[in-house]
Every structure is written in structure tokens, then in C-alpha cells.
């Protein structure tokens, strides 16, 4: 998606980014001549994602900048600082989880904020296209197995591999999302009910592993090899690996294929079987159900926060406003799960 960036008299965000990239990459890339085709990709509130080409004498290198804009307080408690996200990627890749290669971590004082540069991988990210496009039919047959493998490999990564990465278990996450909900001027009985239900149905002893935190279509790059990369690692943490399976099965992320609970691809049973085959432990469906219900509450809170960005005047984009009315979807999903 291309955008025309209009430079305003006082600030020129693209120019600022271009200058920062030239400074940062000059020492890293031999013979760097220019930064071309710089474009901000849509989406993301706490992270800016920019696509660009680094042109050297001999090469044109496709890259991505992930940036926490300077002065933007991370009101999202659970977001990792950009430098920590940059540590997670190579660790995941080293354990067989597809993640982009990090080229450079920015020096915040030199470059207008925290961020990092990573390789840009070719492929499709739009969920509807991944699920429907003829050209990706073969990729789709591989996708379940590759998702299951990624999840099983994520679980193998343990806290000593990333000492700065926080551990967040069910209680920590419920506290965080409830705090976020209570900071908003809204009162939703179904959301209140959901928080209390989750409090009463904590899973017992659980595993620890690396949790991606937003494992779903929309954050996958899929090309003809299948799952080429996982994106948007800013919610990563150590915790219960079933959290990722539950989020993957949350109805909001089936993109019209609601009869295929596992990410719009297949049945829950097929996902669990593939996960176990890839080396994951036997899945307790009750535990995944807890995390799926948690997923409903998490999405409900996120949708209310987006609406609040608009209503509070922070960001006047009509899509933020509209997403506030999607809370009802999450609430219905919650009731369907609890009552079934």
C-alpha cells in the first residue's frame, strides 16, 4: 500500500526518518548512497513500521525500520522496548522459529527514538489473501504444520536465553488488561464477567516458554514456501505457551472462516495433533479454552483502547472510532465460549 507523504512546514517525518537511516546505516553498509522508496506501512500504534531500500554502489537492499517514535510514551504496558524486541528476533530464529534478520539497532540519541532495522521479506501478509488466493494454495497446505512447528519451537526457548525479557503468566496478564480496562471511561458488564470468570478458572501448573503474544494471521508473511516469517514481536514474553494457541484460535482471527477455529485454517484437534507431532507436549484442550476466553477479553480491551484514542482526541482516524463497536463481537465470542 503506497502513501503520498505530504511534508508539513514544521515537521517532515519522512525526511527525519531518511536522515536517521542514512546516519545509522552508513557505518554498517559499505558504499551506502541513498535511502529510496521510503514509505510508512499502515497499522501499529506503539510502533511505526517503515519500508525502504538501502542503495549501495553494488546493491539494492530491501529493509524495514521498526521504530518507537520519540516522545511517544508507551502507554501500552506490555509492549517491549524496541531494543529488546530486536534481541528476541535472532533468539527465535536460532531456535527454528521464522523471524526477520536484524541488521542494526538504532542509537536513540542519534536517531530520533528507539528502533531497529531488519531485512524485508517478500510475501503476503493480508489474511484474506493468504486464506483465499489461488497462487498460495500449496503454501496453505504447509501452513498448519509450519505454525505448529513454530509454536513448538517457541516453547523450547527458556528464560536464560533472554534474561531481560519479562515473564508474564495468566495472573500478570489479567492484572495488566484489567488495569487497562479500568483506566478507560467505559463500563461493560460482559467484560467484568469475563475478568471474574478468568480469575476463577486459572489453569493449574503450566509450562514456561517464549510466547509470541500476537500469534495470528495478520502477523505472518506467507509466500510459496509457506510461513516465511513471524512479525510484530513487541508483545513477546515468557509464559504459558498455551496462550499463543488460545489467541490463534480466538474467533476474531479466523477472518471469515469461523468453522476453522485454528486460525481460520483447520480444526483445534488438527492443530493440537500437529503441535504434538512437532515436539510440543500433549495439549490440554481445557487450558487452550482458558486462553481463548482470555483472548476474547484481551481483544475487547484492545478495541476499547483504540476507540479511546479517537474519543480522547489523541488520534482522529475514523478506523479507530469504528473498531470500538467491535467490542460486541468479542463479548459475544466470550458468552458463546462460557455458555457452551
Amino acid at each position: 500500500m503506497e502513501f503520498q507523504l505530504v511534508s508539513a512546514p514544521v515537521t517532515d517525518p519522512a525526511g527525519e526518518v531518511r536522515d536517521a537511516l542514512l546516519r545509522a546505516l552508513a557505518s554498517k553498509l559499505d558504499g551506502l548512497q541513498s535511502v529510496e522508496r521510503l514509505v510508512r506501512l499502515s497499522g501499529g500504534v506503539s510502533r511505526e513500521t517503515w519500508s525502504f531500500d538501502a542503495v549501495t554502489a553494488t546493491n539494492t537492499i530491501p529493509l524495514i525500520l521498526r521504530r518507537q517514535p520519540r516522545g511517544m510514551a508507551s502507554g501500552e504496558d506490555l509492549d517491549l522496548p524496541a531494543a529488546l524486541e530486536a534481541d528476541v528476533l535472532p533468539c527465535a530464529a536460532a531456535h527454528g522459529v521464522p523471524a526477520p534478520r536484524v541488521v542494526l539497532v538504532l542509537d536513540p540519541s542519534a536517531c530520533g527514538g528507539e528502533g531497529f532495522v531488519m531485512e524485508r521479506i517478500a510475501g503476503e501478509t493480508l489474511p484474506q489473501k493468504i486464506l483465499a488466493e489461488e497462487s498460495l494454495a500449496i503454501a496453505r497446505t504447509r501452513l498448519l504444520g509450519q505454525c505448529a512447528e513454530a509454536l513448538a519451537n517457541l516453547r523450547r526457548i527458556q528464560p536464560p536465553a533472554l534474561p531481560s525479557l519479562p515473564t508474564r503468566r495468566a495472573t500478570d496478564l489479567l492484572d495488566a488488561y484489567e488495569r487497562m480496562y479500568r483506566s478507560l471511561p467505559v463500563a461493560r458488564p460482559i467484560v467484568e464477567f469475563g475478568f471474574r470468570w478468568l480469575e476463577d478458572h486459572h489453569p493449574g501448573q503450566c509450562d514456561t516458554g517464549l510466547v509470541h503474544g500476537d500469534f495470528r494471521l495478520g502477523n505472518f508473511i506467507v509466500n510459496d514456501t509457506g510461513l516465511a516469517s513471524l512479525l510484530d514481536w513487541e508483545l513477546a514474553h515468557f509464559g504459558d505457551p498455551m496462550e499463543d494457541l488460545g489467541w490463534f484460535c480466538t474467533n476474531a482471527w479466523r477472518f471469515g472462516r469461523s468453522d476453522h477455529p485454528a486460525g481460520g485454517l483447520t480444526s483445534r484437534e488438527a492443530l493440537y495433533e500437529a503441535y504434538e507431532k512437532a515436539g510440543g507436549p500433549r495439549v490440554d484442550p481445557g487450558q487452550v479454552r482458558f486462553w481463548e476466553i482470555f483472548g476474547c477479553i484481551k481483544w475487547a480491551v484492545i478495541s476499547m483502547r483504540f476507540a479511546n484514542r479517537y474519543l480522547s482526541g489523541r488520534q482522529r482516524s475514523v478506523e479507530l472510532l469504528a473498531v470500538g463497536r467491535r467490542t460486541a463481537e468479542a463479548e459475544m465470542d466470550l458468552m458463546n465460549l462460557v455458555l457452551s
Binding site: P189, I190, N251, R254, G256, S258, R325, R326, A328, E329, E331, M332, D333, L334, M335, N336, L339
Partner: peptide, 17 residues
């Protein structure tokens, strides 16, 4: 349950849920 269904009928009646 009734509240959820009625609200969703207004907000997005096509939703699978």
C-alpha cells in the same frame, strides 16, 4: 447473553459469533 446478542445485532449482524 441476551445483551451480547442484541448489541451485536446492531453493531455487526453478519458476525459469525
Amino acid at each position: 447473553d441476551d445483551t451480547a446478542a442484541e448489541q451485536l445485532s446492531i453493531d455487526n449482524p453478519k458476525y459469525s459469533g
